[in-house]
Amino acid sequence: MQNKNVHSDQRYVDGLAQNDTAIINAIYKNFVPKVVGYIRKNSGSEAQAQDLVQEVLMVIYDQAHQQDLKLTCPFDAYFFLLCKRKWFNQLKKKRLQKVTINEEIVSEHKEADQFAFETTVFEEKQSLFNDMFKKLGKACQDLLKVVFELDDMQKTAEKLDISYAYARKKKSLCIGQLTELIQASPKYEQLK
């Protein structure tokens, strides 16, 4: 999907990644009312809709930073589909309603479907990563926190009073352990 021409609405993704208030305002003005209206029509409240929108914007922000997210479809279609899917999944979890991903949650834009799907998988993975990180041993958790906070292996080595080579080796071992924890999770097979 990355080979195709990037849509001009990529500015919304870039604006979110840069925490651009004007872009966030534009999203709230142009796209959020439709989402709120949809959720209200489907057993949701205004407050639930607002919470969901904020969660979805947070996921797009995270994905834009961690992956090379380049939209080739309109932002409206992508964003609306993401919100719809997330809402249906919430309803499903709460068993408020029997819901299956049916044609109703498929956009007219096939590319939007694909982007929304990828973002949904990304979100699930983030959740899995978070859960597994907490299962990691304390020594690895502490080391990785310093590694990522400083984002500099030399400074990490100095802070932990260990050699640079050992710091790199420890980092790779800890992320390796985390990789194995994730791969051993039943959820991983669904997200692979």
Binding site: L16, N19, T21, I24, N25, Y28, Q50, V53, Q54, L57, M58, Y61, D62, H65, Q66, Q67, K125, Q126, F129, N130, L144, K145, V147, F148, E149, D151, I175, L178, T179, I182
Partner: peptide, 27 residues
């Protein structure tokens, strides 16, 4: 992916929180 996740969610925790507060304010 874990490397990118750590760099962003742990390394950029302050920026993430700023973003979260900004969207809450706009909302």
């Amino acid at each position: 992916e874990l490397n990118a996740f750590g760099k962003h969610t742990i390394g950029k925790a302050t920026e993430r929180e700023d973003f979260r507060q900004n969207i809450a304010k706009v909302a």
